[in-house]
Amino acid sequence: MRQRTADWSIEGTIKAVLPGLSAFLCVMLTAVPYGVPQLSIVMPWLGIMPIYYWSIHEPRYLPYWLAFLVGLWQDMLTGGALGLFALIFLLVRHFVGRQRLLFFKKPFLVGWCGMALVLMGASAGGWLLASLYEGALLPASAFVVQTMLSIMIYPLIAWAMGGLWLVVSD
């Protein structure tokens, strides 16, 4: 069996870091104040989208530890339960990575439906874990609206990631 060797050239390094960088950037974009009333409460969950996208398209450039670190970064910016997003991103990376052939090079609608399912599951899990952590039920309506907005905005993020994939793919 032919082993893939690490490419330490400048081009190879750029390809290797772009997926991780895009994930960190998406997390940062979630944290910027946009000045739109109530938007921060239901801000689309941009950080999970690159995790989903790269788990399907280039899982070799998004190892488990990187998905964990992106989640940890989101945890720290959010200021809530430390480890919550790290756990969610790690599980998304694992389960989507295992089923990646269901979505890889399939019509966009298939990938979109997959993202919608992942978002619904991750939001429900996040709501449950955060409620357990706080010892009180968090308002579920904000999670529902956030999930819907995230599903709606995914095509835009997927389009941007698609542009990056042209650079990253061999």
Binding site: A31, S40, L77, Q146
Partner: peptide, 15 residues
């Protein structure tokens, strides 16, 4: 200056 607003539905906080 407010530079971050990352709490989402989890936390109401600004940076």
């Amino acid at each position: 200056r407010v530079i971050g607003d990352a709490g989402g539905p989890y936390v109401r906080a600004v940076l």
